[in-house]
């Protein structure tokens, strides 16, 4: 391999390493940016979903309270509408698992709420005989007893949804800490690549020095000494390359000059 090729490979290696370091940095920064964007989006979406759950819960609550107050057997359509709204928001939150721990609390509270409401609403009340009229009338469970069970689970679910709504604040701090860790990871490959590049620079400098610069200086010094004092021209050059070729050619030139003089 020739002098030009070796030096070119040396420089190309350095350029490649530096390019590599920059490329890794850009790629990792892109990932970090998308992580940050994800946090913001997740926070926003979490708030939206919590608001939907709250709205759904309010609709269900209004429908149930109306049902109890008007002594109806089943709640009106707003109950189904609210239930659907709540379930959709909940399902989406589960799917993206935003603020996991707080969502677990919603899950538990929702299960309790659903259990109390469903047991009140189904199975469909069987008609019973009215003692005074002797007619079959639909059974109405004790509304007061139901409300005693219903209100705590409702407040519990309401509280859980509110906590879920507030959770983006705490979760952002958690996720920001994760991003901070990722930021450390992001710069590590680039730092390592730069360190390797520094080692390569040091080696490159060392090799250029011992294989090319020092021999050229030796040849120059030896030539100067030859010209000044006729000290034999014999610089030490390791290996076989263009520099040793230069030395050989100078030796030949000297020999030629000597033979011409003779």
């Amino acid at each position: 391999m020739g002098l030009r090729k070796r030096i070119s490979i040396g420089f190309m290696s350095l350029v490649a390493l530096l390019f590599f370091a920059v490329a890794i940095s850009v790629a990792e920064l892109g990932r970090l940016r998308s992580d940050a964007r994800e946090i913001v989006d997740a926070g926003k979406r979490g708030n939206d979903l919590a608001a939907m759950m709250m709205s759904g819960l309010q609709k269900q609550n209004s429908a149930i309270l109306r049902m109890v107050a008007t002594e109806h057997i089943t709640p009106d359509s707003e109950y189904d509408e609210g239930k659907k709204e709540f379930e959709n928001a909940y399902a989406e939150a589960m799917e993206v698992m935003i603020h996991g721990t707080d969502l677990d609390a919603v899950t538990t509270a929702e299960e309790n709420y659903r259990s109390v409401v469903e047991s009140y609403l189904s199975p469909a009340p069987a008609p019973i005989t009215n003692d005074s009229t002797g007619m079959l009338e639909p059974f109405r469970p004790d509304a007061k007893k139901f409300l005693e069970e219903y209100l705590p689970v409702y407040y519990s679910l309401d509280e859980a949804v509110k906590r879920y709504m507030a959770s983006p604040q705490s979760s952002i701090a958690r996720r920001t800490a994760m991003v901070e860790d990722n930021a450390y990871r992001t710069i590590t490959p680039s730092i390592i690549t730069l360190l390797v590049a520094i080692l390569v620079v040091l080696m490159f400098h060392f090799f250029i020095d011992i294989y090319y610069i020092k021999p050229v200086l030796r040849i120059n010094k030896s030539l100067e000494q030859y010209l000044a004092t006729r000290v034999p021209f014999a610089p030490k050059v390791d290996g076989e390359n263009e520099i040793s070729g230069l030395r050989d050619n100078i030796e030949k030139l000297i020999e030629l000059q000597k033979s011409k003089k003779a």
């Binding site: 391999m1 040396g10 490649a16 390493l17 590599f20 690549t193 090799f207 294989y211 290996g239």
Partner: peptide, 15 residues
């Protein structure tokens, strides 16, 4: 890649 670069570099110059 980085280790191979470090390992191969001296071989370009040293016989």
């Amino acid at each position: 890649l980085l280790t191979a670069t470090l390992g191969l570099f001296p071989m370009i110059f040293v016989r």
